[in-house]
Amino acid sequence: MNSFVSASTVEAKPAAAEDVVRLVNVKRSFGDTAALDGISLSVRKGEIFGIIGRSGAGKSTLIRCLNGLERPDSGEIRIEGRDIVGLAENELQPVRRRIGMVFQHFNLLSAKTVEENVALPLKIEGIAKSERLARARELLDLVGLADKAKAYPASLSGGQKQRVGIARALAARPALLLSDEATSALDPETTRSILALLKDINGKLGLTIVLITHEMEVIRGIADRVAVIDAGRIVEEGQVWSIFGNPESAITKSLLAGIRPQLPEHVAARLSSAGGTEAILSVDLAGPQAQGALFADLSAAHPHSFRLVHGGIDHIQSQPVARFFIAVPTRDPGLKDEVEQFLTARSARVEVLGYDTDHV
């Protein structure tokens, strides 16, 4: 292990209850449009916190407020306990040095070598050349690019450029790393390698990371907690496994549609609001109940009460998360209600999607 990793691990040991970021009722409008409409959240030291939403949800404005580039109209933004709202530009500078930024399009200087790009924040601070280049080499070793120190950005792949961007963001030993859509320009395999690197850095350095993204796979890959933002408001927040297992808001369900089991299209196409031979139910479970003998117990309690249409079990943050679709015969008017009650009593979220008009 190199000296940089071991020293930083000692320096950055997290205090679990300490908030690095705390927002209280933050509002920011542009004309009549509310980009942020009362955002409140906290990010604990050493945590990877995801903020996800569609384009135009307010993510970009939020991240610009976090690093002081955008001033909110009202509310508090505390970084390591200090409210940065209202600070003069010269007062913001030391706060910004505690914040590293990783960008979607890398923002590397093409005329400078890799090590010069990494060392640039330290040059701006006036750190001696020998010290800043030594720091750059340590960081390039950390991100797996020690052999690229003298190369220029044009010779690097997209994933390598992002690794350089991450190394540069760590140059000034920040307390907080902001990742602004850092993987959205990368292919899936490279994305996984960058997420693994961020997770590794978080573990080794105890670094607090806030991920801004529109990709649920990114959140699933490394985040501890997630906030879903829509129209400038947080519509859902919690542990990643819990949100994935039991999404409540329509926007969260929509964002998850690509990575959670969905009712097969040919079944969904023939559903009606009433009058079918079977009621189609979605059943969402998270935690221990998701891998228990739920359907075996249901069959024992109510024989011939359902058939399994589609679904599966996943594991997120070592927690089982499941979604199933079942069909309940409508021949007995009370059977659907009995099945729903049985499932909800066992912590399942149940929704009647409609009635199958064609199944025999």
Rank of each mutant, 00 (worst) to 15 (best):
L69N: 14
I77C: 05
A35E: 01
A88F: 11
S110Y: 02
F106D: 08
S157I: 05
L66P: 05
L66D: 02
R168S: 07
L170R: 06
A151S: 14
A149T: 10
G56A: 02
G50A: 09
G158V: 11
K129A: 12
Q162I: 06
E80D: 14
R82V: 12
V118Q: 06
L69S: 02
R54K: 13
L92P: 14
S60C: 08
C65F: 00
D37R: 04
A111T: 15
G75Q: 00
I84N: 04
G46K: 06
P72N: 08
I127S: 01
L108D: 04
K123V: 01
V114N: 08
P94V: 04
S157V: 12
I51E: 01
R132A: 04
I99T: 11
D83L: 00
G100H: 11
G50Y: 01
L36D: 04
S130D: 15
E125P: 13
A57R: 02
Q162S: 03
Q93I: 15
A151T: 07
G46M: 09
V85H: 11
Q104V: 07
L66I: 00
V143F: 09
N90S: 15
N107Q: 12
R135I: 12
G144L: 06
I124L: 15
L62N: 00
Q104E: 09
L66K: 01
S55N: 13
N90R: 15
P121Y: 03
G159R: 02
A136N: 10
G50T: 08
R71P: 04
C65Q: 05
R71F: 02
A154T: 14
V102D: 02
L139H: 07
G38R: 00
D147I: 06
Q162F: 08
N107A: 15
S157H: 03
E89G: 12
A35S: 14
I39S: 00
L140I: 12
G86H: 13
S110Q: 11
R82Q: 15
I166N: 05
R135D: 10
G50M: 05
G126K: 14
I127R: 14
I52F: 01
L142R: 09
I166S: 07
S157G: 11
K112M: 11
P153N: 07
S130M: 10
T61G: 13
G75R: 00
G68K: 03
K123Q: 13
C65P: 08
S55G: 08
